[in-house]
Simulated assay, not measured.
Amino acid sequence: MHTQLWPYVTPGIPDDLFERLPGIPLSKREVRLLIISALRLKSDSVLWDIGAGTGTIPVETGLLCPKGRVIAVERDEDVASLIRRNCDRFGVGNVEVIEGSAPECLKDIPHQPQRVCIEGGRAIKTILQEVWQYLPSGGRVVATAANLETLYSVSGTLSELQARNIELVQSSVNRLETRGNRQTFSAVDPIFILSGEKLD
């Protein structure tokens, strides 16, 4: 059920509607739309979002999949609480927040994922290898990379896992901002978005 804060079925909630904590990453709206598109969700999808940060992806996907379930994995207790508060802000009731470090905590999640989103992280190769074991045939994984090292790590791991239908998109977004009495364009940090499917 949508709240008045965002009464639309369209994804792309403005960044400033989310509660934030200093230093905690937030997937920018335009990047978020690309991630959601790559996930190819259904109304009843089960999604694991690993490294959920501010909780923008869990909120958006929770609204898009009213019959589904979103598992948000976050190791920091304060950040996990932030995700819960943002879910409450938007009336999202199908998000479960798991406090723990991936990949160690993944074995304790009772719901098998059909989709997995991995938002950066130092152990992204290990996490990707681990979640692959839980994905069914036809399952999809989407991972983000903010630098070349992570990009090479994810692309190499998807190749090792023999992922199919691999796609790679790099965002290039500029937003109009008002500075003083002028309007200028400001670039949103580019992010690589990689996706692939597990097909037996």
Rank of each mutant, 00 (worst) to 15 (best):
160 E>H: 07
60 E>N: 11
181 N>R: 09
178 T>N: 06
81 S>C: 07
103 P>A: 05
121 G>N: 10
8 Y>I: 03
72 A>P: 04
26 L>F: 09
90 F>A: 01
81 S>K: 07
52 A>M: 05
35 I>A: 01
124 I>H: 03
87 C>Q: 01
35 I>F: 01
146 A>H: 12
119 E>D: 13
13 I>C: 04
144 T>P: 03
164 R>C: 10
175 R>P: 14
71 I>S: 00
95 V>Q: 00
59 V>L: 00
129 Q>E: 08
65 C>K: 03
86 N>E: 04
129 Q>G: 15
1 M>N: 15
68 G>H: 02
198 K>F: 13
29 R>S: 13
121 G>Q: 12
106 L>C: 10
178 T>P: 05
96 E>A: 14
169 V>T: 15
114 Q>E: 15
31 V>L: 10
73 V>R: 01
132 W>Y: 14
89 R>M: 03
71 I>W: 01
103 P>Q: 11
47 L>A: 06
181 N>V: 06
70 V>C: 01
34 L>T: 14
144 T>H: 00
35 I>C: 10
109 I>R: 11
178 T>L: 14
196 G>K: 03
165 N>F: 15
136 P>C: 08
38 A>C: 13
131 V>W: 00
51 G>I: 08
172 S>E: 11
53 G>A: 10
70 V>T: 14
51 G>F: 04
128 L>S: 07
136 P>W: 06
87 C>D: 00
53 G>R: 01
28 K>N: 14
65 C>T: 11
11 P>C: 08
76 D>G: 04
82 L>E: 00
69 R>K: 11
106 L>V: 08
108 D>K: 15
140 R>P: 03
86 N>K: 00
136 P>H: 12
156 G>H: 14
36 I>V: 15
121 G>H: 06
173 V>C: 14
100 G>F: 04
177 E>Y: 05
14 P>W: 07
164 R>I: 04
88 D>I: 00
137 S>L: 08
21 L>R: 04
25 P>F: 07
153 S>A: 15
27 S>Y: 02
129 Q>N: 09
25 P>E: 10
94 N>D: 13
69 R>A: 15
138 G>W: 03
47 L>C: 12
105 C>G: 13
189 D>M: 03
180 G>F: 08
102 A>H: 02
43 S>P: 08
99 E>D: 03
116 V>I: 10
123 A>Q: 10
42 K>E: 09
74 E>I: 04
86 N>H: 06
93 G>H: 10
34 L>F: 11
58 P>L: 06
24 I>E: 12
76 D>R: 09
43 S>N: 12
192 F>E: 08
65 C>F: 08
105 C>Q: 02
137 S>Q: 09
70 V>R: 01
31 V>R: 01
55 G>Y: 00
194 L>D: 03
81 S>T: 09
157 T>E: 02
11 P>T: 09
58 P>H: 04
86 N>S: 14
100 G>N: 07
42 K>H: 14
31 V>W: 00
11 P>V: 09
46 V>D: 03
110 P>E: 07
39 L>I: 11
184 T>E: 02
166 I>K: 12
149 E>Q: 15
19 E>M: 15
156 G>W: 11
19 E>L: 13
